[in-house]
Each structure stands twice: as structure tokens, then as C-alpha cells.
Amino acid sequence: MIDIDDSLPETPSRRHPVRSPWLAEIVERREEARDIFTLRLRLCREAARSRYRFQPGQFNMLYLFGVGEVPISIVSDPEDEALLDHTIRVVGRVTRGLAQLRAGDRLGIRGPFGRGWPVQAAEGRDVMVITGGLGCAPSVSVIDYIARRRERFGHLTIMQGVKHHHDLLWRERYEAWGRQPGTTVLLAADQGGPVWPWHVGPVTGLFDQAPVSPGRTVAMLCGPEGMMQAVVRELRARGVADRDIWLSMERNMHCAVGLCGHCQFGPHFVCRNGPVFPLAEIADLFGVRGI
């Protein structure tokens, strides 16, 4: 197996599996909800494990034999070096196939790719993690990261909005986060129900309960673009600067290294320059239809 091309100059490609993937084994498969599951993976080769390092918000390309690759964010902790968790929703051919795999099955990994959440820059500041819909997996990594290093950060506010009350994943996890000191968990469902004790309405309706301190608050957003646009309006109205608003963007990705062109978002390659962007970098394009 060749995973390093010696003819190339010293660049990140010498340290990443850029062309063919690295081999990984499924250590555990956990069902999260209907059509949502988590694969806990372990790189098979010691050399790969020792070289592999990632930041919360980065992603891997997972390869299913004979079917293809999909970009999936890494939800486990970067210091948990041996195991890599990926929470996946069944949306297409590859994810449907990945859902059939069981512990002990093997697949391929290329990664980690892209820019993750600004966890270093956010140290000492209040953090708001605002997510919508089912697209909350990329934000779980950063919430867990902060929760495990609580003393390094100011107040943590977690705001999660779902369409229907039964769309809420990880209810116990939200409740556990909410019991931590200096942490506020606010949940909203467009359609509540008899067992929904939280806000009924859009996630932006939670801002009345959320403390925002311009200059001190760093906001991290993940979810459908329409939801993120509405949240950006609220944050701006409360004085949060564009450089303190970070968004996890999503576009079609094939190569994950900025070569194939599919993920272009204006001048940016989402796979390489993102997927996490400060709003200040993309403000002229964000929310424009068809970009």
C-alpha cells in the first residue's frame, strides 16, 4: 500500500491520506434515532494512528467499498486519539450502505480535512453554540470539547432548534450539559407536544433567554442556511461582530482537498478553507440563493 507519494514536495499531502484511504475498523455502531447512527472507528495501522490529529469541526471522507465516499464530521474528542466517532444520517447511497455495517467491518478513511471550530481563539470567552434541524453533529464535537475543558471557557449557551419535538437527538445529553456549571441549554421546536417542556417556535425565539455580550461572545452556528441566516440577524442586532460569528457551511464534496471544484462558495473551497468560516469572510455571499 502506498499512501505517501515521495515524488511530491513536503506539504500536508505527505502527511494525509490524500489519494487512497487509510484502513479503519468499526469498533462500535450505535443507533441514535431512525436513520441516524454513530460509527466509532479505529485506524488499523499504528503508523496511521500516530500521524492522525484533528480539530473539532474537521471532517473525514468515509469510503464504503464498491460504493464511494462521503464527508462526515468527526464528533469525538481530539484527545481521544484511538477512536474516531462519526454520526451519520441516511441521505443517499453511501450513507445507506454505511448504515448496514456492523462492528468489525472495515472501511476507508481520508482526512482530517478543513478548518474546524475556533476553539483556541474562543478560550476565555463566552460561547454560544446555535444549531438547527438534524444537522447538529458537527456542533456536538465543539460542545463536548468545551464541556470537558470547562475551566478554559466563559459561559456556554447551547441553543438547539428542531422542526418537530421528536426530531431532538440526544435529549439526555442536552440535559446533562445543562446540569454543568456555567452552562445554559435552550431548546426549541417549531411543533411542540405534550412531552415538550421547552420553547415552541423557531430557535431565534430563544434569544430573549440568552445572555449575549458583544466583544465577549463567540457564536458557533450549524444547520440549514435559512436557519443560520435568521440567527445571524439576531446576533448582529445584539451587537455581535461578524468576526465573532462562525458558521459550518455545507457544499458538495468529492476530493476534500480543494481540487475537484464542487464545493466552491464564491472564492472559497469549503473543504479546504472551511467548512467552518467566520461570517466576516463570507458575508457578501452568505444567504445569496444559488451560490
Binding site: 500500500m1 502506498i2 499512501d3 507519494d5 489519494r19 487512497s20 484511504p21 487509510w22 484502513l23 469510503y63 467499498f65 464498491g66 467491518d105 472495515r106 472501511l107 476507508g108
Partner: peptide, 13 residues
């Protein structure tokens, strides 16, 4: 990618 009868995979650039 090559898959053997045990399900193991081998990759080749």
C-alpha cells in the same frame, strides 16, 4: 480497493 474473503480491504494508489 481490494476486498478479500474475510472482508479486509487493501488500497492501492
Amino acid at each position: 480497493a481490494h476486498r478479500d474473503e474475510t472482508g479486509n480491504l487493501r488500497f492501492q494508489d
